[in-house]
Design a protein around this nucleic acid. Structure first.
Lengths: 193, 193
DNA sequence: GGTCGGTCTCTCAGAACTAAGGTGTCCGGT
DNA sequence: ACCGGACACCTTAGTTCTGAGAGACCGACC
């Protein structure tokens, strides 16, 4: 009875292989629990969506370590990378950064505050539009990003190392089709409806 | 020149279909930009990992709407679902909840505070272990969860609607293999090394 | 030339989390 | 019986985001 108070995930064999030949992941345990408690519901969508959430978390944690080695964090890297990708002269407006980073304007303001404080970007008013601000990557900012980028890619490559090149391609293509099906086309502003 | 200050994603065709038969997603644009600016780097891992991050965000936003319709939010649902999955008598310790939710103990304390305030769970001291707390789902908590769960599943199903059953299975299996390869076996505590 | 809706950035309060540390409890060795 | 390490939960400070809204500015229209 008190077994139920333990972590339910521990109720499973930690390393054994069952008849099907593979150990399960955390989502297998959860799906088995739902099948037990609510056999009337088809919980199969969780098998995809729950794993995406878990993987995103693993990715985030791994990336954080990489960024920290370069004195950065994920939000900062996000902004620096967007400016770097834009190409010479490495300039974007806060609104453009807001759209690529998928965060609110308030979040961008704060990110830019932090980056400006560290001397990685500069803010200047736009000549063409009195409301707009022009964010420019400094030499220090470009240097920091170019130093972090290969390490970042190596971290990502390492996370995918267990999948074969064919599996990686297949996965990227499935995720791409899924993303497109959700109607998030590039540059599309959030649908107000 | 000032075009570069606009959202770079807008530089792409928004809705057209090219020769390959599909419009691109946001990650296609980013990969094209990197290929332009840093042709020396192989950015293909981003094609998988960047899309996982974006999809997780879409999933999170869609789920939030569903939870709100039932007076809940994602953290609350997470805890209630873990208790519900545990089966009769719907009890777990904060430590067990911490492990399944993959958050810190402080976060669980706060989640439980909110849920206790709303009467969806109760906290009692364990008889077997004086340090431990026993969290129990109340009738109201179980009712709230059982009402939200089908709606939640319907939301997830809707998000996957564009993929065929075969694609969904294939995707779940790829994600499962990937997750297992990262060493996150069920019940595994975070590796201290 | 003036007006008015829309846009751009910033500000502020509040939500939720992490990291670090505190208190109380358990348990194995002496 | 006692002591010290391990454990369970809570507390607090600090971080980053969202949501709502203010102030300035643009451009089209009258």
């Amino acid at each position: 009875m008190s077994d139920l108070l333990d972590d339910p995930a521990r109720a499973h064999d930690g390393n054994g292989t069952d008849g099907s030949g593979t150990a399960g992941d955390a989502m297998d345990v959860i799906l088995a629990q739902w099948a037990q408690e609510r056999p009337d519901l088809d919980c199969s969508p969780m098998g995809v969506i729950g794993r995406v959430s878990q993987l995103q978390r693993e990715v985030f944690l791994a990336q954080r370590g990489t960024f920290a080695r370069h004195g950065l964090d994920a939000p900062s890297f996000d902004v620096l990378a967007a400016l770097r990708r834009a190409g010479e002269p490495y300039q974007l407006t806060p609104t453009a950064l807001m759209r690529t980073a998928l965060v609110t304007s308030g979040a961008i303001t704060q990110r830019l505050d932090r980056l400006e404080e560290k001397g990685l970007i500069t803010r200047g008013r736009s000549e063409a539009d009195g409301r707009a601000v022009v964010v420019t990557l400094t030499d220090a900012g470009r240097t920091a990003l170019d130093a972090a980028l290969p390490d970042h890619l190596e971290t990502e490559r390492g996370m995918l190392a267990a999948l074969s090149p064919e599996e990686r391609t297949q996965l990227a293509e499935l995720l791409r089709r899924w993303l497109i099906s959700l109607g998030r086309v590039p540059g599309g502003t959030p649908d107000p409806s």
